[in-house]
């Protein structure tokens, strides 16, 4: 057995150069032996510094300066929080009132009143529109455009002056606009307000409608003596429609009685819807038939 021995060639049992197919129904585990840096320097550890931080703080807990500093800071934070809460409360209050205003202007008034038509006879101009325009001027611009219907060939002087007064109104640029059409038409003493399909007849009823859609502007249903105001409104309605002078005189007398010595109807200190209606009715038919206290009231209403 001298000399080199020839080894048997054996069959290779394990091959290392083949791709090993890993089954995919198994969990993948992290290779803990490998030292690859792909995971970043923290690996899969969560907040490794927290413990060290706490540990380092432990030594200082008993030191008085630190405790004082901490309590002072806590106080400041508390005060800041209180201020913040106050501010939020204040802001809430302010924005709440804004929301109410917005609702009032955009939901209740603008869509309901836009494109409204008032039909009126030139012999009986609805003077109350001027008062409405004036009262509304703080919250909205009431723009009135006038048309002449073909049933009328010429306007009376009063109607023309009245139309001019309405158009002289200067709109505020930052307020919402409401446009209303005034159509001069041959329809007798009671004007018509057309909002839906049926007309609202008579100037006092027209005002009632305005008062209902703009409750904050007019003194009417929000006052204690609605019944008094209502009766004045009804008298005004009849006054315009009265045919004879005796009829008119009796209506004027009852108006005068209702007014009494108070500055406005119903003992109010501010102008009410009743004053507006009565004022317009008197201007239309009986400007020269009223007594002194009534004329003083008329001037007050202007």
């Amino acid at each position: 057995m001298n000399g080199p021995v020839n080894f048997y060639k054996t069959r290779e049992i394990i091959r290392h150069d083949v791709q090993v197919l890993l089954p995919n129904n198994m969990y993948k585990m992290k290779n803990i032996h490998g030292n690859d840096k792909d995971e970043g320097h923290l690996g899969d550890h969560v907040s490794p510094f927290e413990d060290t931080f706490n540990i380092s703080m432990q030594g200082m807990e008993d030191r008085p300066e630190i405790n004082m500093l901490e309590s002072r800071l806590r106080k400041i934070v508390q005060e800041l929080n209180e201020i913040r809460e106050d501010m939020v409360k204040l802001k809430g209050a302010v924005s709440l009132s804004e929301v109410v205003n917005d609702l009032h202007v955009e939901v209740t008034t603008v869509p309901n009143l836009n494109d409204t038509i008032v039909n009126a006879s030139p012999s009986h101009p609805p003077y109350s529109l001027l008062s409405v325009q004036k009262l509304c001027s703080r919250t909205m611009n009431l723009l009135v455009s006038t048309h002449l219907h073909s049933t009328i060939s010429a306007l009376t002087d009063e109607a023309e002056t009245f139309g001019r007064q309405l158009s002289e109104f200067r709109p505020q640029p930052n307020l919402p606009n409401i446009s209303l059409r005034l159509i001069w038409k041959n329809i007798g003493p009671s004007p018509e307000l057309i909002v839906g399909h049926l007309p609202i007849s008579g100037e006092p009823n027209m005002l009632r409608y305005f008062a209902r859609v703009l409750p904050t502007i007019f003194t009417y249903e929000n006052s204690d003596n609605v019944i008094d105001l209502d009766s004045v409104l009804d008298i005004s309605y009849c006054l315009v429609r009265s045919r004879t002078k005796t009829e008119r005189t009796s209506y004027l007398q009852s108006l005068s009685k209702k007014l009494g010595k108070s500055p406005y109807f119903g003992g109010h200190t501010e102008i009410t819807i009743a004053d507006i209606a009565a004022c317009s009715a008197i201007k239309q038919v009986a400007q020269n038939e009223i007594n002194q206290s009534m004329s003083r009231w008329l001037v007050r209403c202007e």
């Binding site: 048309h147 002449l148 219907h149 073909s150 159509i183």
Partner: peptide, 16 residues
């Protein structure tokens, strides 16, 4: 029926 009209003429927007 007799013809009726407004003076000045009524102008409506197409969308109205």
């Amino acid at each position: 029926e007799p013809f009726t009209f407004l003076d000045p003429a009524l102008v409506l927007k197409y969308d109205e």
